[in-house]
Design a binder for these strands. Sequence first.
RNA 1: GGCGGCGUACCCAAGUGGCAAGGGGGAGGUCUGCAAAACCUUUAUUCAGCGGUUCGAAUCCGCUCGCCGCCUCCA
Length: 477
Amino acid sequence: MSGRKEDFSPQSQGQVKMYVCGITAYDVCHLGHARSAIVFDIVKRYLRYKGFQVTHVRNITDIDDKIIARAQKDNVSYDVIAKKYTDEYYRDMEMLGVSSADIEPNATDHIREMIQTIQGLIDKGFAYPVDGDVYFEVGKFAAYGKLSKKNTEDLMSGARVDVDERKRSPLDFALWKSSKEGEPWWESPWGKGRPGWHIECTAMSSKYLSETFDIHGGGADLIFPHHENEIAQSEAYTGKPFVKYWMHNGFITVDKEKMSKSLGNFFTIKEILEKYDPETVRYFLLTAHYRSPIEFSDVQLTEAELSIDRYYSTVTRIKDFLEAAGAAEKPGTSADLEKVLAAFKDKFHNAMNDDFNTASALGFIFELIREVNRFLDSKPSGQKAKELVVRTRELLAGIGGILNIFNRTPEEWYRSLMKVKKIAVSEEALLQKIAERQEARKQKDWARADNVRKELEDKGIILEDKKEGTAWKVKAG
RNA sequence: GGCGGCGUACCCAAGUGGCAAGGGGGAGGUCUGCAAAACCUUUAUUCAGCGGUUCGAAUCCGCUCGCCGCCUCCA
């Protein structure tokens, strides 16, 4: 609310109540929706890792103008649209590997609570009914604009809103809308109608969390008017502060412009996952700070893929080492590795404690990766060296668990890349080729061996000759 | 017009008062039959520009330029 970073201390010690605006179920989700979901998934995971007991609520708006419009266009009932796109949303989230929230309420299941809140606002003089609609009277709420840092005069003068004569001020917003012919409706004290957009978050957050809760999240485009209006309604109704910390994620851009439905420059989650592994998408989104805009492009996704590949290549090396390392104690560059290892957790925590700076955290991960590679290059052996490497592996895996990346085996990663890159070689055919090439290599028929390698490379497979044999992997990037 | 944000190497990006993380790319090297992977060296005396504060600024302040967002539904 201050517009700055603040020290985090939840209302009740050890417990975090977090509400994140989900989607309006009127169309398929694009990458922008994915960013919000992924960002707050990481927030939740990290807070839990730090020992907080987190209650995460993520709502679904399943009644709204756009849903109705879509339903009319498709000539079906509004709930068919809402159901369809809610299902799509859940499917997208599952494919992306985003964990579900603890509570995922739908607006239409909370009409009663919303009516109660609206009635309360009328009783307290903050809202007024007109012809079956109910409006919130912005002028009655002195602090209006405190989140978006707008003052009401500026808003008035810049008002591009259609002036509705029945409203006392153009800034007043609907809590309840009377239903027109053919629109869905619920019975209310003001006649048949449906809730306005903002009221659901007030009603549901107080129901599932409390009147004041710790973190409220969503995309930066929700700051105004959505979150501003939520504050007004909620604080007017309860007389208590609504939210302690606001977190808004930045936009995904395409050619520097916000990815959005209206500009038509969006990529759906499904489209992207046809070309990239979900882990690549998640990693990509973590490479920039959550508040910054992030430019979507194939180059960026490709770089993310290369970075992940670097991690899995290192994991493979680690595995090879642990299987092959001799018993003789040889320390290698263990002193350097130990140093990096010792400092790593603090660095990681500092980065994440500083407003979830995942980009910085990833930097430290790659420092550790370089160091362990350096250590392995120094050809260490013995029990102590093994222990050090195992420690590194566990540390990396643990961190990966928090960021929800690096949580597969290299084999799984490469199999997934094969699929995503539509590589036209089966694993059997591949092993066959490798065997063929081994034969040629044994006979020092380098030309034939190189031919096989070239042939596979053209199909996107890279071969690596090691002491113990030849390994394959999918060419990243 | 009002409000807010951003501008760091060839590209992406962290750093917000004390000698400029990390990834990708380029160049050279080590290793290898040759590769790949990995590692090493190198690639910003400089952080859009100009002033100011300070012992010291990419980091704070002011101005200028450029880009973007919100002010209407929007993650």
